[in-house]
Amino acid sequence: MTVITAEQIAAGAAPRRRRIRDWSDAVLSGYLLLFFAYMFLPLMFMVAAAFNANPTPSVTDWQGFTLKWFQALPRDARFVQGLLHSLAIAGGVIVISIPLGLAGALILTRLQSRASTLLYTVLVSPILTPGIVLGATTMIFWRDAFGMEAGLFTAAIAQAAFIASYCMLMFMARLQRQDRALEEAALDLGASSVFVFRRITLPFLMPTMLTAALISFLQSIENYNTTFFAIGSSWTLVTEIGARMRFGLSPMINVIGVIFVVITVVSATIWVLARRRGGNG
């Protein structure tokens, strides 16, 4: 018999297809395992070495468990001062970025003209500009135009240049979900524009405002490239880490690493859990 029915073809093809699928799934799983090992192993080494008494950060040359590097950190004046600088800059960045990002987003969501794409391009361009260029231009401009030497102020300005763009994108995403009828209803009930903004729009944006502040804070604290160029003779926690690392490795940096890892893991877990609950609810 040479007649083959469609059922026979299907019966023959299906298991084969499933085999291929299982096989490619297995390859993908194996690859993921490798990928996450690549991502996490170095970080684990970094964390482990923070507890090694060896003054050269190492996990292979173990000289005993210690917490002395943790005790040494708060006594290191430059690190502590750097942290204070970082916090001051981050505060400044939030104060600058939130109003700017908000104003830009409010304008862009309501501007009905061809200029809006151009405006949008200009306002997001800092995100697409290399950090060192932002740092350098800020440093040059503020010195040439206002005689302002590079320092904490220029660092905050340079960071705010691109962090404000991120804030703007967040506000725009939120504003696009806003029901225009709410504003119109308020206006119709006799509210002035300012009253509508204060009583309707701002409360609606409040959650985004908090998220944007948090993200601005983290971006500012973590920033290296831009800050490195714009900060002049001053320093932040992160540029100080960079300066130390050029001289060689110190377990104190591992300790900072451990702190960062703990903060990151905790907040990422909270975020993922919150997202899951929000997604299900």
Binding site: E184, L187, D188, L189
Partner: peptide, 20 residues
């Protein structure tokens, strides 16, 4: 004369109650 100064009140199709 802007909407907030007119002697009218509008009931929206989706009601537009302020959720907060």
């Amino acid at each position: 004369i802007r909407p907030n100064a007119r002697p009218t009140a509008l009931i929206f199709q989706n009601l537009a109650l302020f959720p907060l």
